[in-house]
Structure formats: C-alpha cells, structure tokens
Design a protein around this nucleic acid. Structure first.
Ligand code: FES
Ligand code: FES
Lengths: 150, 150
DNA sequence: GGTATTTAAGACTATTTTAGTCCGAATATA
DNA sequence: TATATTCGGACTAAAATAGTCTTAAATACC
C-alpha cells in the first residue's frame, strides 16, 4: 500500500526513546511500551529485530533491558525502518534487474529510481540524534506558546 | 510494505499503452493485456477503476473498447496510481491530524511530510505524454546500440 | 542454590490486503 | 437476432499485518 507499517513506526518510536535516555540508562520493554504507546508484547518482538540488526543492545535478567548499541548520531531513520521492515523498494523492479517486463525499455523505471533516491536521501538525512534534538526544540517552543496564552 | 502494488503498476502500463496509440484508436482489453503482460481478467477490473476515475473512456459492445478520456499531457503518474490505489500517504499520520500519538510533538512528522512532498513532486512531474516520449527515445537509442554491435 | 526479574524465541490467531478468476448482465454494432 | 465487448460483483487463495501468549534462558541478589 505504499505505506509504512506499524513495525516501522514502532521501531522508530522505540529507538528515539532510547536515544533520548541519559548515558548508561537501561530501559525496559514496559517503560518504552507505556511512554510510546506501543503494545507491550508486540514491542518485544520489534526490540528483538532491532537487537539482531545491531541497533540495540539487550541484557536479560534482573537489571536487564535495552540500550542503543551505537551512538544516536550514527543511526539513521532509514536504518531503523529497514531493520524491521527489510530493505525499502518503492517498486519491485527496483530490487534487481529482470523483475519488471523488459526493464531497460520501461520509461517509468527512471522515475521510480529518482523517487527512491529522494526518499532515501530524506530518510538517511535524519539521525536519531537529530530527532531527539528536534523533539527538544519542539517541546521548548510549545512551552513558549503556552506561556503566551497564559 | 512501502511498495507499489500490482494494481498501480498495471494501471500505469495500461494508461501508457493508451497514450501511445494513434489519435482515435480504440483499444481492447485483450490487446492491452497481451502487449503489457497483465492478466486479462485482472486488467478488466483495473480498467473499470480507471474509467470511474475519469482517466479513461470506455464503450461497450461491438467496436467498443478503451481510449484516454483526456489528452496524455494532462494525466500524471500520480493521478494514474491514485486512481487505483487510492491516495498515497507514506505514513498514516499524514492522512489527517490525530492519527499519530500527539502529532505536533512528534519530531518524525516533518520528515515524513518532506518525504511525501518529494515523492509527490516526482510522480506529478511526469505526465503520460512524457513517458510515451521517453519510451520512444529509449527505443531509438537501443536501436543505435544494436547497430553499433552489428 | 533459590528466587525474582527480564528478554528471547517462536507458535498461534484474527483481520485485511493482494492478486487474481469467473460469470451473468448490460450495451452497442451489424 | 447474433456477435462483440465492457460492467459489476461474487468468489477465492495466499500473503501480509498486527497482534497475543507461552515457555525457555540469562542475570542479579540474597
Ligand atoms: S521496469 Fe521499473 S518501472 Fe518498469
Ligand atoms: S506524527 Fe507523523 S511521524 Fe509521528
């Protein structure tokens, strides 16, 4: 449907949450689930994917939980989404040659290629560190708006 | 899955086919299906959608068939796809306010907004007339390549 | 060692979407 | 009337989506 799935959306929320935590803080499924409004048992599966993809580090048992596996400025939005959704291709013919009926004669192919490139530029241009910073800026400006009203 | 469905792909093929026909030519499901490698009975449904969306004109009965309802230079790639897939939104929260958990506080929202805008620019920037012209250019240049080889 | 805590792994399910097929009815031509 | 052709909708199989639930494994603390 040319639309991000819940998997992708939830993965992004979870990673942003981790990125926003203070250095060394370990987060529990429960916290993330409540704060980011993601069903707990569903989130658990998503965290597993993120862990296997190497974005997140997990520790089991008492005092266990999740942290980022790398610094937030090295994790892009694209990587986070693809970790749970698999590689993004706006059209099947972009996966590899021979998927479409006579790819090199298809006039639409270059158009999808460009659309794909632009989408990737946007998703790769934002790191989790950027998003955390943006979130802070939004919070501050909305606080100012509240004060103006009062 | 953040990917174009067969509906969209087939619709584009069908409309390009019609756009490439000489003025006044009426095309049959059968022709389009064979030429563009789309299952006949599936294509029939897609043509209905395109007709209802006002991109294509249909006439039943003997000597019936399909033609474009408007000139090819007024039909964009976006319009063709949305005629069969419905409006494109890269994330549900782009549909309308209140879809995401607290939209105005979400730092990811502006990113999706930009991705959406760029995608739309690409898909709206190509008309069916453009694509037919591109196809001709590709055919010519591939013919030149053949001659060089021979 | 025993117990509480916490994630890992995967089986299971319900609903929706995708990608079609098939057929009878309507419509137009000759 | 016979023939050609789309229209409309019912029908289907397979996959994706969006979850839930249960059991196992790892870790910490007493
Ligand atoms: S081959 Fe890629 S759009 Fe046709
Ligand atoms: S509200 Fe649109 S991405 Fe979060």
């Amino acid at each position: 449907m040319l639309q991000l799935t819940r998997d992708g959306e939830y993965a992004v929320r979870a990673v942003i949450f981790l990125a926003a935590q203070p250095e060394g803080k370990v987060s529990l499924i429960n916290e993330i689930s409540v704060e980011q409004e993601v069903p707990k048992s569903y989130l658990s599966k998503i965290m597993q994917h993120l862990t296997r993809a190497g974005l997140v580090k997990s520790r089991r048992g008492a005092k266990g939980g999740f942290t980022l596996a790398r610094t937030a400025d090295t994790i892009t939005l694209r990587e986070t989404i693809e970790a749970v959704e698999g590689p993004i291709f706006l059209n099947v013919c972009l996966i590899k040659k021979g998927e479409c009926h006579r790819d090199d004669l298809c006039p639409v192919h270059p158009v999808w290629k460009e659309a794909q490139k632009k989408l990737m530029e946007v998703l790769e241009g934002k790191t989790m560190a950027d998003l955390v910073k943006d979130a802070e800026a939004i919070k501050k400006s909305s606080k100012r708006a509240m004060l103006r009203k009062a």
